[in-house]
Structures are given as structure tokens and as C-alpha cells.
Design a protein around this nucleic acid. Sequence first.
DNA 1: CCGCATCCTCTCGGATACTG
DNA 2: CAGTATCCGAGAGGATGCGG
Lengths: 166, 166
Amino acid sequence: METKNTYSFSKKKEVAKEKLGIDMETNTDNQKVRMTKKLEKMFGHIDYKHPPELCPVRDVMSVASDQWSVLIILWLGYFPVLRFNKLKKFVYGISNKVLSQRLKVLEADGYISRKAYAEVPIRVEYSLTEFGQNYVEKLLELTEWMHLNSPKVIANRSKYGSFGDL
Amino acid sequence: METKNTYSFSKKKEVAKEKLGIDMETNTDNQKVRMTKKLEKMFGHIDYKHPPELCPVRDVMSVASDQWSVLIILWLGYFPVLRFNKLKKFVYGISNKVLSQRLKVLEADGYISRKAYAEVPIRVEYSLTEFGQNYVEKLLELTEWMHLNSPKVIANRSKYGSFGDL
DNA sequence: CCGCATCCTCTCGGATACTG
DNA sequence: CAGTATCCGAGAGGATGCGG
């Protein structure tokens, strides 16, 4: 998977130039070049004409960057372990159904672990796995940025006028 | 906004202990403590019982972490400037309607800029703003992680069984 | 207490056709 | 070319009630 690269950067540049009339060489800024390298790593190996279902990154991200999933993971990063109803309290506004769905998917994808204790009434504890801890760190970098910049965005938005929501 | 903190960490611990039966002091690991600090910065100032609509971070993130928005921003990070139909080709699978919606919102939120040239036929060029460049860097860190780890997730998923999608 | 099953609503988003 | 307008279907997600 690492070695196979059916769609190299030079090939991409070709396509960009010939089929789309875009000259990649206009990328001069260092920062942009670094960014392009990273993007190349992610997009370079795929043909942009292939069905998006074949892109595992899209797939995985759609779970991990889901609004509810993010909140669940963040709160589980905050508290070491949480039970279903506690979690529901923190992830304010989530319904039983959605919470339970997300928890199942997040468990399946390896972010969280679920421990059920055979008591009466039953007790279930959710916590982050090693992998989930790993992810929450990445996520925090993003949410930190969001926390920092959301005022700007809100300001922009109202300056721009009242357009659609999402 | 920075100084106002109606819901301090110690208060949070109180609530956690008294109302939810969670002892925050079980956080021993250094990494977890750092994480908790960050989370505190984001969640500490809000009462988790307040309506989620009041949380600007949720709001801003729902736009910025939207699947289509992410792809648009990434491709605009790859190519310095793209026109509507080029963009549509790269963000494979997106419809006119959604692309146009997302572009409008992303412009309103300050990530991208739109330049229309009064030619016939009309030409419109989209590119990242300074702010958008800023964001795409953050985003790339996350997508890099995704690119790196999606195989693990897929593996986990199939190991776990065939459960729901998303 | 956990969370599934059901029902029902309602928004998102795809397809197509049309205009400046 | 760059969108808008309209229609329509799928499915996400909320509320409730029940079972383990």
C-alpha cells in the first residue's frame, strides 16, 4: 500500500495542466510546498475519478469527525471512564439511539472500549482505548484551534450577512 | 470571554464527584493531565446543561469538519486556485447544490475567497484565504493521522464484525 | 440501569432542467 | 461557465415504551 503509487505527483501535474489547465508550478511559497507534499501523500495515490467509497480515509473520517463522536471522545478524554447515562448528560442533546449507535461504531473502530458488569441493575463503563487516547490528542489540537478561532469565524459570519446554516 | 469563567475546574470536579459520582483525582497519568487541561480550557467555561446551540465551537466545527467542506478546503490547499467545475471534478461525487452551498458558507466563515470575472462566459475563481491556509494546516495534521491509521481502523472494524456504517 | 425497537418527522442531499 | 430552482427519495435522528 505504501509502495504502490499508481498516480504520481508528476502525473498529477500533467493531468492538472493538460486536462484542467492548472499550472502546479505556480506554487512558490514554502509553506504551500510543504502542504502540497502532504496532500500529495494523501491524494497522490488515488485517481480523483474513482468512486469515493473506495477512499478509506473518507470512510474513517466520516466516523471519527462526526459531531457526536467527537463530543463522546472528548468527554471520555476528560473523564477516564463514563457510564452510559453520565455520558448522555455530558454530550448534551444526544438521544439514546444515537449515543448507542455511535458508541457501537466507535468501539468497532477501536477508539473506545466497553466493559459490562453483570450486576443488577447492569453497569456499563466506557473508556478510551490506547488508540482512542492517541486520537483524542490529535482531536484536541484541532478543537483548540477551533476554540481559539471560533470568535473570528462568528465575526466574519455576521459581517458577511445572514446566510444559510451549514 | 477569556477572563469570564463561570464554571471553574474545581467546580467541575465538585459536580463530577457529587452529582455524577466521578472522582477526577483518578487522573494520574501525565498525558491525561495535559489532556484534561486542554479539555478544561474548552469545556470548563460552559455548563454542560446549557443548550448546545450556545456553544460556538460546536457551531463552527460543524461547518469546518463537514465531509464536503474538508475536501473542498484540502483541494484548495493543493491547488492555489480553482474554478467551480474544476473543484467539482476533484471533490468527486459532490452535487452542484451542495458544492455551491458549502462554498457560500465557507466564504462567509472566512476560509475561502471568491473572485468573479465579468467575462462571457463568466469565470469564478476560488482560493483559500490566509485564515483558510491556516486551517488547512491544522486539517492536514488530522488527515495525515487518518491516512496513517485508517488501515488499523478498517482492520479493527472487520475483526469486530459487520456492524452499522456510521 | 442499559439500550434496543418502533414510529415518525424532517432535513440533507442527489438529479435534472433552466437562466444570466 | 457558474450557479439557482424544483422535485423527490433516503435516512438520520428525536421520542417513547419496553425488555434484560
